[in-house]
């Protein structure tokens, strides 16, 4: 789990800034060359990063695009390698996780900004940061060794005891309690700090003016939040949502440990499944030849989705800044 939040694209200060040096200018010193060199190395690494993965997946895309995107089932080592189960699993787990994270995270952000006294706010922020700092494998461990057995022993029998549960949903309780649902819940806990970190900031910058104006019109505290703060912060909150979704899609080991690792399109959430990232992690060690290319191709899919979501999120957060600049 990462603690990195994309910083505000601070274009305003950028424009005001007097360039201390211009790389295009004639009088370059060794220091400027060094900076440009570093920038070029970084650019090369980034291009290499994207290029290498795409290049290595090319053979599989060339011959089996349909299977990768629409096939069910993964036959090691010769193929075919169907990616549908992973795509569906990624969608299921990240959407459920997102719903959990947004619902709880929105409430938490509101509480942090409006309920927690200023001097405790730092402590709470540290707390949320620590939540983000816990390595994902530790969440995975927790889910795998504590939550999954608990699901198997307690939750699933209880669900089964509901009238008609078996008839409607079939018998549940597979694979030591690992399931898509459990993975989604843990994933939700993991992306919660990401969402809170941004939504908290977005909510906090809603001008106090507007809050006082609505209070002065007789609004209750909740009305202030619901009808003034949230609408004003809306675009930025969408940005936070997209970033959290990006994180959820890329989360690997926790899902690998908790989801059960079964490559089969599964809509029954209490059954095991897998996700793109988790499948790459669990299969890569044994993979040979074409299977490596197929896993790389899954990586390309993951990359496209993740980069797309990140860019949308970035764009939304920068638009939010413009909206507030008008106020």
């Amino acid at each position: 789990m990462s603690i990195v939040i994309p910083p505000p694209p601070d274009f305003s200060s950028h424009e005001e800034e007097v360039p201390e040096f211009n790389p295009g200018a004639s009088s370059r010193t060794w220091y400027q060359y060094l900076l440009i060199l570093a920038a070029l190395v970084f650019a090369a690494v980034s291009v290499g990063f994207v290029g290498t993965i795409i290049w290595n997946s090319a053979p599989e895309w060339a011959h089996h695009t349909g299977t990768l995107l629409g096939g069910n089932g993964w036959q090691s080592p010769a193929g075919p390698f169907g990616g549908l189960a992973m795509i569906v699993g990624t969608l299921e787990t990240s959407v459920i996780a997102l719903v959990i994270a947004v619902v709880i995270g929105l409430g938490a952000s509101i509480s942090i900004v409006f309920l927690i006294p200023r001097r405790f706010r730092n402590i709470v922020a540290t707390f949320v940061e620590l939540l983000a700092a816990v390595p994902s494998v530790v969440y995975g461990l927790w889910g795998f060794l504590v939550l999954a057995p608990w699901m198997l022993k307690t939750v699933i029998p209880w669900l089964d005891s509901w009238p008609f549960a078996k008839e409607l949903f079939g018998s549940v309780g597979q694979q030591d309690g690992q399931s898509l649902l459990l993975a989604s819940v843990v994933l939700g806990v993991m992306i919660l700090p990401t969402f809170v970190a941004i939504s908290r900031e977005v909510i906090a910058v809603v001008p106090n003016d507007l809050i006082e104006a609505s209070l002065s019109l007789g609004a209750t505290r909740w009305q202030v939040i619901r009808e003034v703060v949230l609408p004003t912060a809306k675009i930025g909150l969408f940005g936070a949502t997209f970033l959290a979704l990006a994180r959820a899609t890329g989360e690997t080991v926790a899902v690998a440990l908790i989801a059960g690792g079964v490559a089969n399109v599964q809509f029954h959430l209490l059954y095991p499944g897998t996700s793109i990232a988790a499948w790459i992690a669990t299969e890569f060690g044994e993979a040979q030849g074409n299977e490596v290319a197929a896993l790389m191709a899954l990586g390309v899919l993951l990359m496209l989705v993740n980069f797309g979501l990140s860019l949308i999120s970035r764009w939304l957060v920068s638009r939010q800044r413009k909206v507030l600049a008008v106020v």
């Binding site: 990462s2 910083p7 650019a43 290498t52 290595n56 890329g250 989360e251 790389m296 993951l302």
Partner: peptide, 26 residues
């Protein structure tokens, strides 16, 4: 710097910062 390279590297670094770590492994 205010060059085009800087502007695009800024976007790249922010996108890379959120990239799934498994891709670094690949």
């Amino acid at each position: 710097s205010v060059s085009k390279l800087a502007a695009s590297l800024r976007v790249i670094s922010q996108t890379m910062a959120g990239a799934p770590s498994i891709l670094m492994g690949l």
